[in-house]
């Protein structure tokens, strides 16, 4: 319990530091934002008015406090680029609102695919006595890890979209329209994110199991007459899964990174795509929020994995 409390305090501290870093990074940007919004032909009065409106005349610390205060009240600020109507700029929360589910579902679906495919694959691989299977899986996984996710996305588009016609590339189905159609389209980008990670996880689990198979307790279990099955699943797999859980937790941040790129490949309107376009448009309020959002999500996942790990293996908390 004391441990949990300590972890929670670190978590809050980290989130605070991340927010400060995300905000400060965009204060040292060269070039005047006001000029880039209004163009070079605006009158000095109009520029001054906008500067005042955006709070650029306040000191940075005040602006940070104002920003964080807004965040805590649910006010994420307004975009520089997108307008709601003639005289109102688009609130960032509205901009992100309907894009967030797309990215979350994509990440969730990829994670499910990774777990469902890599675990049986890793176990079968570790059990296989055939040298040919071992070598073949070695080559296949090594190659899968060398393919960058965006090229994999293009290959998936070509194989499943152009040749097999299982989906129409670029014809994204909104989750508001049809949820099953949405998932049906999402499965292909999710697969593109998952394949290299499946290769990594399967390799990792296989190596972990082979290490465990050489341990003393395996010989003891065999010696006291446990069935092959029981030794494999009851003893070896249980212990071999421990490091895999940590590994999966570490992969989460790569799944997030993968989805930023894959959304671009498949034309998914998620927050990754919004991030890239906001960076190109120099729409900093949106970039700040998205960076904060993504990093917080990653930090939270690490936190949860850490807790989960202690629940699965109580020995860790005793150490």
């Amino acid at each position: 319990m004391a441990y949990l409390g300590k972890k929670l305090i670190t978590l809050i501290m980290t989130l605070f530091l991340v927010s400060a870093a995300a905000f400060l990074a965009f204060q040292i940007i060269p070039g005047d934002v006001v000029t880039s919004i209004l163009g070079t032909e605006a009158t000095p009065e109009r520029e001054e008015q906008l500067r005042e409106e955006l709070g650029f005349n306040d000191p940075p610390v005040m602006r940070y406090l104002h920003w964080v205060g807004g965040l805590l009240r649910g006010d994420l600020g307004t975009s520089y680029r997108y307008s709601k109507n003639m005289n109102e700029r688009m609130p960032v929360s509205e901009l992100i609102g309907d894009k967030l589910p797309v990215t979350l579902w994509l990440a969730a679906l990829s994670t499910v695919l990774i777990i469902v495919i890599s675990l049986p694959l890793g176990v079968l691989w570790a059990k296989s006595r055939s040298h040919a299977v071992d070598a073949a899986l070695g080559v296949v996984t090594q190659t899968a890890m060398a393919v960058p996710s965006f090229f994999l996305g293009i290959l998936v588009t070509y194989c499943f979209g152009v040749v097999l016609k299982l989906f129409t590339p670029g014809k994204y189905v909104s989750y508001r329209q049809s949820f099953s159609g949405f998932l049906g389209y999402l499965i292909f980008p999710a697969l593109s994110i998952a394949i290299p990670k499946i290769a990594m996880t399967a390799r990792f689990l296989r190596n972990s199991m082979l290490t465990e198979l050489g341990a003393d307790y395996v010989r003891t279990a065999c010696g006291k007459g446990c069935s092959q099955r029981r030794v494999m699943y009851g003893h070896v797999l249980r212990n071999a899964l421990m490091p895999v859980v940590t590994f999966l937790g570490m992969i989460i941040s790569e799944i997030v990174a993968g989805s930023i790129v894959i959304e671009q490949v498949f034309g998914l309107p998620g927050i990754g795509r919004l991030l890239i376009s906001s960076i190109s448009n120099r729409d900093f309020p949106v970039v700040e929020i998205l960076i904060l959002y993504i990093t917080s999500a990653v930090i939270l996942v690490y936190f949860l994995v850490d807790i989960l790990y202690r629940v699965i293996d109580p020995r860790i908390s005793e150490k």
Binding site: A22, A25, F26, I28, I29, S253, E254, V256, A257, I260, V261, L275, I276, I279, R282, F284, V287, I291, I294, T295, V298
Partner: peptide, 12 residues
């Protein structure tokens, strides 16, 4: 994720 950091630096 390293790409996220690179994106931040690039956007700055």
């Amino acid at each position: 994720p390293s790409i996220l950091l690179a994106l931040v630096v690039i956007s700055v």
